[in-house]
Structure formats: structure tokens, C-alpha cells
């Protein structure tokens, strides 16, 4: 029981990370109908920027409690600039091109960012400085620590904040208008380019937060960490219903649970035929199954497939 509870906690923590990243995917998709393949790399660069600035700030004697928000802000600003740049250079000129074109540039952007990060930060694993005592708490024998609790709460808070933004503000209304029909929105006086840029920047800022959380939780960052994380977060977004903010959260948590319970129990359940070596397969099977049987996802309203 205690082991089961621990697996649930593992899944929820991992799922919150997926959810944070999935929110970025889903925002861009909801508005542009574009899979921003490079989003995972933005997460990685956020983590790298946070670690670099944090190490630098601590190096010049800034107190940890001040350095932490400063470096978070720095990473978010950096990623916002990056997101803006990516959209301007790689996606905007192709807004009316056939669907495959922006997807191929997105793959290109992802490869370029990964290799640039490798040149800047090297191939080694960077360790995240231990700042706050990460004290463990016991819940019925299962263990959860401070950072993990923060990640979980943060993911929920950010989702709630985004919901408010989209449904209660002028900007949110403009976003929904652009998502509904770009031409009509333009005729109604919405500056489409601005709305799309802001969306990318918001998504990228979220990516920076997610990247920082991941590296704080696992204590490291690496130039390759973004790719698979991005892919799984995308799966989470599809599972929940892409374009739907609550769906991203739900999909993320579910995928996290599927992975941890799957990896934890598949060996015993299959009598040793399969094992945790198939952990990464679960996400892909979920992805294929959802797209084939319920392409609109769990909470999606709109039909996601169109010829």
C-alpha cells in the first residue's frame, strides 16, 4: 500500500511537470493549430538559463532567497525572447503555407536549438545548486519533498491563472477570437500578429518555469533533456484534448500516473515478460490510441482531425 501510494505521488509529480509543459503546447495549438515541436527545447533552455544565472548570482554573493526569483525572472525573459524570435523567424512566414511546412521548420528549430545549447553549455550534466533544505514529508509511509509539493501546486496555479487570462481579460478574448477565425478577428480590429506573439511568449515563459522546476527537482540539466520531455508533454496535451487548458492539466497528470504505475507494476502483472524497459513505450501507445479512437482527447470539444 505504501509502495502504491509512493507510485501515485511519483506519477503526480512527474505528471505536473508534463502538465506545465503541455500548457505551452496547448496554448499555441489552440490559437494557431500548429504543433510547436521546438517547445521542449525551450524548456531545456529555460533550465539552462536558470542554472547559469543562479550559479553566477550565488557566485557574486547574492543571498539565495533573492537569487532564486531573480534567476527565474531571467530565465523567463530569455525564453520569452526566444519564443518571440522562433515565431517571427520560423512560423510567421509560413502561416498560410501547407500544413507540413511549419512542422518541418519546427523540427529544424528543435535540432538547431538543441545543438546551439550544446555548444553554449557543453555536453556535460549541469547540477542545480542546493539552496533550500529540501525536507521530506511522510504521507502514510510514502515520501514527498518540498520541491515536489511546489511543482504540483505551481502547475495547478498556473493553469488557473491561464484560465482566468483566457476567459476574463481583453487579451484572452482576442486570443479566443484569433483561434476561432483569424480573418474575422482581424476585421474586428484584433491585431493578430500581436496576439500570436504574446501567446508564444507566454508559452515560453511557462516553459522556463517548467524547465527550472525539472532541474531543481532532479538536481541537473542537460542539453538533451527537452526532446523526450516535449514529446511526452505533447502526448499529454493530446490525451487531454489539445487546445484545452484543463485538458492539458488532466492529460499531464494521467500520463504521469500511467507511466509510474506502468513502470512499477508491468513486471509483476506480465509475469516478467515485459518490464520497466518498456516505460517510454506507454506514452507512445497512449498517443496512438487516443489519436485513433478519440482524436479530440478526453476534454476536447472540437474535432481535431480534418483532412
Amino acid at each position: 500500500m505504501e509502495i502504491f501510494l509512493q507510485q501515485i505521488i511519483n506519477g503526480l509529480v512527474q505528471g505536473s511537470v508534463y502538465a506545465l509543459v503541455a500548457l505551452g503546447y496547448t496554448m499555441v495549438y489552440g490559437i494557431l493549430g500548429l504543433i510547436n515541436f521546438a517547445h521542449g527545447e525551450v524548456v531545456m533552455i529555460g533550465a539552462m538559463l536558470a542554472i547559469s544565472s543562479l550559479t553566477a548570482l550565488l557566485g557574486i554573493g547574492v543571498p539565495p532567497l533573492l537569487a532564486l526569483p531573480l534567476s527565474a525572472g531571467f530565465a523567463m525573459l530569455g525564453c520569452m525572447a526566444l519564443g518571440y524570435g522562433i515565431e517571427r523567424i520560423a512560423y510567421r512566414p509560413l502561416r498560410h503555407a501547407p500544413r507540413l511546412a511549419p512542422l518541418i521548420t519546427a523540427i529544424g528549430v528543435s535540432i538547431v536549438l538543441q545543438n546551439l545549447a550544446m555548444m553554449v553549455w557543453g555536453r556535460e550534466y549541469h547540477s542545480f545548486p542546493q539552496l533550500i533544505a529540501n525536507s521530506p514529508h511522510s504521507i502514510g509511509g510514502a515520501i514527498i519533498n518540498d520541491i515536489q509539493i511546489i511543482i504540483f501546486i505551481l502547475a495547478l496555479a498556473i493553469m488557473a491563472g491561464l484560465m482566468l487570462l483566457v476567459h476574463r481579460t481583453r487579451l484572452g478574448r482576442a486570443m479566443r477570437a484569433v483561434a476561432e477565425n483569424q480573418h474575422a478577428a482581424q476585421l474586428m480590429g484584433v491585431d493578430i500578429n500581436r496576439v500570436i506573439s504574446v501567446t508564444f511568449m507566454l508559452g515560453s515563459a511557462l516553459a522556463a518555469v517548467a524547465g527550472m522546476m525539472v532541474s531543481a527537482n532532479y538536481g541537473l540539466a542537460h542539453y538533451y533533456m527537452g526532446f523526450l520531455l516535449g514529446l511526452k508533454a505533447f502526448t499529454a496535451a493530446v490525451l487531454g484534448g489539445i487546445g484545452n487548458l484543463r485538458g492539458a492539466m488532466l492529460g499531464g497528470l494521467l500520463l504521469g500516473l500511467i507511466e509510474s504505475l506502468g513502470a512499477g507494476y508491468i513486471g509483476d502483472l506480465s509475469g516478467g515478460v515485459f518490464g520497466s524497459n518498456y516505460q517510454d513505450v506507454f506514452a507512445f501507445f497512449v498517443l496512438i490510441a487516443v489519436l485513433v479512437f478519440r482524436p479530440s482527447g478526453l476534454l476536447g470539444e472540437r474535432i481535431a482531425e480534418r483532412a
Binding site: Q14, A263, G264
Partner: peptide, 11 residues
């Protein structure tokens, strides 16, 4: 390439 081992370690 992994960095999260909590699920297998819990098992």
C-alpha cells in the same frame, strides 16, 4: 538519457 528513476526505484 533518463533522469527520473522514482518509478523503478519505488518498485
Amino acid at each position: 538519457k533518463a533522469y527520473d528513476f522514482t518509478a523503478v526505484l519505488t518498485a
